[in-house]
Simulated scan of single mutants.
Amino acid sequence: MKSIIQQSTFMCLLVGLFCSACSREEVQGPTNDAPIPRILELSPANAAAGDKLTLVGLNFSENMAENIVRFGQQTVEILSATETEIEVVVPELTGSQVGVSVRSRGKVSNKAKLVLVRAKVFGDDFNRSNVEPVTSSIIPNPLGANWQIIQGSFGLTDNRLFSSAGGLESYVLYRDAELNMQVGDGSYFKLTADMQSSPESFAGIIFNAQSDNKRFYLLRTTNSMLQLLKSGENGVGHWVNVMVNENFEGFAPNTSYRATITSSQPGVFNITIINSTTNAILFERSVEDASPYLGGSPGFYYFGLANPVNIAFDNLNLEIL
Results as ranks from 00 to 15, higher is better:
Q6W: 12
Q7I: 02
L17K: 09
C19E: 08
R24V: 13
N32I: 07
D33Y: 12
R38S: 12
A45N: 08
D51C: 04
D51K: 08
T54Y: 06
G57N: 02
G57Q: 00
F60A: 04
N63W: 12
M64L: 15
Q74F: 07
L79M: 14
L79H: 14
E87H: 09
V89S: 02
V90P: 03
E92F: 10
L93I: 08
L93N: 06
V98H: 05
G99Y: 07
V100H: 03
V102P: 08
K107C: 09
V108W: 08
S109F: 07
S109W: 10
N110R: 00
K113H: 06
L116G: 06
R118G: 04
D125Y: 01
S129C: 03
V131F: 03
T135K: 04
I138Y: 03
L143N: 03
N146A: 11
I149R: 05
G152T: 04
G152R: 04
F154C: 01
D158F: 14
N159K: 15
R160L: 05
G166F: 07
L168H: 12
V172I: 14
R175P: 00
D176W: 06
A177I: 15
A177L: 13
G186F: 02
S187A: 14
S187T: 15
T192C: 01
A193V: 01
M195E: 04
M195K: 09
S197T: 09
S197H: 14
F202A: 11
A203V: 07
F207Y: 12
N208G: 06
N208P: 06
A209C: 10
Q210T: 10
D212E: 07
N213R: 13
K214Q: 09
L219N: 15
T221P: 01
T222K: 09
S224A: 15
M225P: 01
L229K: 12
K230H: 12
E233T: 12
H238P: 06
W239G: 00
F248Y: 15
E249R: 11
N254W: 08
S256C: 11
Y257S: 07
A259E: 06
S264R: 12
S264F: 13
Q265W: 11
P266H: 05
G267N: 02
F269L: 15
N275Q: 01
N279Q: 13
A280W: 01
V287E: 02
V287Q: 05
E288D: 13
A290H: 14
S291R: 14
G295W: 11
S297D: 11
F300T: 02
A306G: 13
N307E: 12
N310S: 13
N310D: 11
A312M: 13
F313S: 04
L316Q: 01
I320E: 03
